[in-house]
Nucleic acid binder design. Structure first.
Lengths: 280, 280
DNA sequence: TAATTAACATGACCTGTGTCATATTTTACT
DNA sequence: AGTAAAATATGACACAGGTCATGTTAATTA
């Protein structure tokens, strides 16, 4: 099993861990090693500038995809006051399986993998989460623990609101229940579809499916050629569809030989999506 | 594919379809063939007696397992006024995949299978639902369609509340959101566990798991010997764990030869649960 | 009660996919 | 840059489990 930075939450930690700065957000910061310095002191000018467009929910670039998308200005203002924005370096863990659920996480920027460890210690990735996806909504009303771990695949920014505050917000904005219901449904549908796929489809079909799905998540979707830059290892991709990594590798080669995809290192490019879909 | 009574909903239909009366509820009714007669006229004395303990939520024997379990008397009274109690004969369909979701169903008595049909026409049973289980909560706030079909495995009684009424009840009793959240979580956990199982366990382990799970649903759980009376065909059991029926049959024989279970027709008896668990 | 059908059971066979071994390439670290 | 360690790739092999065929038993229907 891969060892990952297991330090949780928070900009202070992020800064402390930061060595080469955060490439995604194009920062080059001095290094801070002392966590005893108060958080506010640690925040540089550069950081402030980066957080700015996310600090005000009403002006957030990701609002349309956010859980709080259709709330009125007043409600958004309340949320702005309570929420914390955390930065995570690539490879760090938001929370891990069986840890107590503390509140609600909303991804503002970045990409995460949602995974569980099975009884034999193998990692199973359920899905990749991205902007607008939320965690912790399962346990708003109960003293529960997370059923899965979330790990950043790239440098990411995540808004956090503690449980009690979420309850208060919900009380004042029952509209939000609909959004959460929507989210629950989305997850249920996804799980059902995935289970069906695992049960009734062969490995090749599932890999085709995975590629199409990963391609869909890419924003630079301009032309026919879609480059998948999820930055997943073969082992991770395999664990998303429940097959051995060797099988995945073999199938990728097959697709390559059939002229459907192009492989260059970690990055895959889909050349013929139509043909790919016939397999899925 | 098996053809099932595809008549939906309602006591009127149930009565109309009834031939040998409803064994479970010990009814012997005259036969009604005309649906044009108003519903109330169709309800016999015997029926009234059977529905009685379910009509008043506050006195319902299944209240502790119901979605409405921890509501105050006033709220329950409101629900009593709106809800409809429907009877279904064994093998009839509450609702089927892709049909519009009309409201909330709560199982008051009986047992149902929850299933989907995959792209190749094969049935996949997700789980067996029983007293207290609910359907339609997914679509309370949206104009959605059911993602699966539900079919009664025995004569069953189901309370129904239309969507609009559910919304009103929720507005007045936000406590209910917690119950629904709980339900969502329960389903998600179940799905996750099942998917994990399908991905990482072999057929034998999954069948062992299934048997244990089915045994747990039996109420006559007194002694070590647990009789499974779910009344499922081998094909249905196989479709619950995603294997071919032949494989299931073979594995059941194996368990029989190992002295773990006893088979006599449809009814299975678990003789050695401990040993069974070592496989799961 | 016989007749028909559906469900159950078992054998033969074959393919997909996991496991293990090993080589090659890429990435990370000093 | 050079070395160590992952990650990727490919081959050999075994076997779990799907499919098909066929027989047997149980459940319906006439």
């Amino acid at each position: 099993m891969k060892e990952v930075n297991s330090i949780p939450i928070g900009m202070a930690q992020w800064l402390a861990k930061d060595r080469n700065a955060c490439p995604k957000f194009n920062l080059s910061l001095m290094r801070f090693h002392s966590l005893s310095i108060s958080l506010s002191l640690l925040i540089s000018e550069a950081h402030m500038k980066i957080l700015e467009p996310f600090r005000k929910c009403s002006h957030c670039n990701s609002l349309s995809k956010c859980l709080f998308k259709n709330l009125d200005a007043g409600a958004l203002f309340e949320i702005e006051k309570i929420k914390r924005i955390n930065l995570y370096r690539k490879g760090s863990i938001l929370f891990s399986q069986d840890s107590p659920a503390l509140g609600l996480y909303v991804i503002a920027k970045g990409k995460l993998k949602v995974s569980t460890i099975d009884y034999e210690g193998r990692e199973h990735i359920s899905y990749l989460a991205t902007v607008g996806d939320i965690f912790g909504h399962h346990d708003i009303f109960i003293e529960g623990t997370h059923r899965y771990s979330t790990t950043t695949l790239e440098d990411s920014m995540v808004c956090f609101i503690d449980k009690i505050s979420v309850q208060k917000i919900l009380e004042l904005n029952p509209r939000l229940f609909q959004n959460i219901f929507e989210r629950f449904n989305f997850e249920l549908d996804g799980l059902r579809a995935h289970e069906q796929s695992v049960i009734s489809k062969k490995a090749k079909a599932r890999v085709a499916e995975l590629l199409v799905q990963l391609a869909k998540q890419e924003i630079e979707n301009k032309h026919e050629k879609i480059k998948i830059a999820a930055n997943l290892t073969r082992v991770e991709m395999a664990s998303m569809v429940g097959i051995a990594s060797e099988t995945l590798i073999r199938l990728l080669s097959e697709f390559k030989n059939e002229g459907i995809i192009e492989i260059s290192g970690k990055s895959l490019t889909i050349l013929d999506e139509k043909k790919l879909l016939t397999f899925a």
